[in-house]
Design a protein around this nucleic acid. Sequence first.
RNA 1: UGGGGCGUCGCCAAGUCUGGUAAGGCACCGGAUUUUGGUUCCGGCAUUCCCAGGUUCGAAUCCUGGCGCCCCAGCCA
Length: 570
Amino acid sequence: MTADATPRSDFIRDKIEKDNASGKFGGRVATRFPPEPNGYLHIGHAKSICLNFGIARDFGGVCHLRMDDTNPTTEDVEYVDAIVRDVKWLGFDWGEHQYFASDYYPYLYDGAVRLIEKGLAYVCDLTLDEVRKTRGTIKEAGTPSPYRSRSVAESLDLLARMKKGEFAEGSHTLRAKIDMASPNLKMRDPLMYRIKHAHHYRTGDTWHIYPIYDWAHCLSDAKERITHSICTLEFENNRELYDWYLNAVDAPWKPGQTEFARLNLSYTVMSKRKLLELVESKLVSGWDDPRMPTLAGFRRRGFTPASIRSFCDKIGVARADNTVDVALLEYAIREDLNTTAPRVMAVLKPVKVVIDNYPADQSEEFEAPYLPDDPTKLGARKVPFCRELYIERDDFMEVPAKKFHRLAPGAEVRLRWAYLITCRSVVKDAAGEITEIHCSYDPATRGGNTPDGRKVKGTIHWVSARHAFNAEVRLYDRLFKDEKPGDAPEGTPLAALLNPRALEVVKDAKLEPSLVAAAAGQNIQFERLGYFFVDPVDSKPGKPVFNRTVPLKDAWARIVKAEGAAAPAG
RNA sequence: UGGGGCGUCGCCAAGUCUGGUAAGGCACCGGAUUUUGGUUCCGGCAUUCCCAGGUUCGAAUCCUGGCGCCCCAGCCA
């Protein structure tokens, strides 16, 4: 177990403390994170991972990583590899405790035989449709299967032959004999095994029957001597079955199930089905598309493991349905990167500035700290300067709006780390578009200092035109238009819900030269713009590609919005 | 014949068992500092806890009755 040993509490930890106090599990604490390898892990899983591994850490227990692989038709090694990679990346370690439900198939089969022998399970020949019809409804009891009273010997024989593959899919199932009139539908003779003549990614073709979740899960927990089996709210009705199976097989170790509310995040979806659909329909570039709420997506977007752990701490654990504001996640990553990410300069939407009183053949360098708030921490780099520069188009307004204190005709601003400049005139093309902003600089303000003590309201970033290099920068935004895309009517195509501006590619941003050496996988801040990440997939040595992790908070944007103030000129 | 859960500030969430007079975070709104309109700092932000009755000196907490939302009828997990 690793990471952030901040003590915290929630209803599950409280329960564990009580269990420990009463000696319920002999003081043992063993949890497990049990993903099914049929998709990539998302931020909702991170909540569960932090909970399960965090509890093990806090109570000096263990947390197992178990692949809950009971359905051969949807599972794949690609997914188990991705899961292992992602949990490790998040910062957790399960030691030797990596398990597979598929390794328990023989043990599960033995348990099934025992239930039949005890008269607690039977092989049923009803078709899928017949099972559905006889299950009854929410308000009406179901009716017993005609095969319910089949002899033990016959069920035993049939199960053995099902296992050998003698029957067609759907022709037989193994069912627990519980109560067809139970108000809890999960207890109406639930299925334990179904026939599937499918190749399993781990057990190959050795099995023709595969266990249903409820049967496999509780026995897997028991086998691993889990104490607290933590899952999400939708399994609440399954808890009665969980306990029933454990009693039915006389399990020597009986874990207890506890449910908590799964995480929903605004402006995205968490359903594995929908995420798979996004990937398969190519609406995104893959599971690791930086717009995806998958851990792989967040990683490639530039989120750090610490920021996601911090986020999971902040959201808490409770039993009420919830949708957490993405703003909290954005806060968590800014909080982390603020003290660690080197500051550099890049101009995304450039407009040229010409310093008329600066000699054309001259140039000089300024020393600029990577972390101005803590200058010794990351050192500094040299930033070249010359007569022609690029600045952000948004940092100039020919007719400045109220409270706009950036560059405008006659106005003076500071070029970060360089000089104070004053705008003297602009040059426009035939279409009226500004092509050059002519300025003068004050040689006495070298380094951006004002020896005479005069105040300048604005400091803007810039890049030397002669020394800049071009790079691709990808500006990411929220994937969906609506705060709760999951609330869209059933059947709404995902494509119709996507935010068309979730990705804007800037092909030729102007970057300061130090960035040519930016290493893949590095987090940086483009000053005044946001935090960016050197894309580990598409970057080449000397040719980095940048992904915007999250923009900086923008007080000016809020003023513009509040005052209905001018759209940026230029 | 229905069962299981949940409702505390715009979003999360303590507090509910063991009544004592609404933590904290995000967001938002000020104001100070600032060579990032960033950061940091300081201040504001629920007379009220889904609603209505009741018990009590006192109720978010206890009782009664409503209302709203979520989950369960996959041979998915």
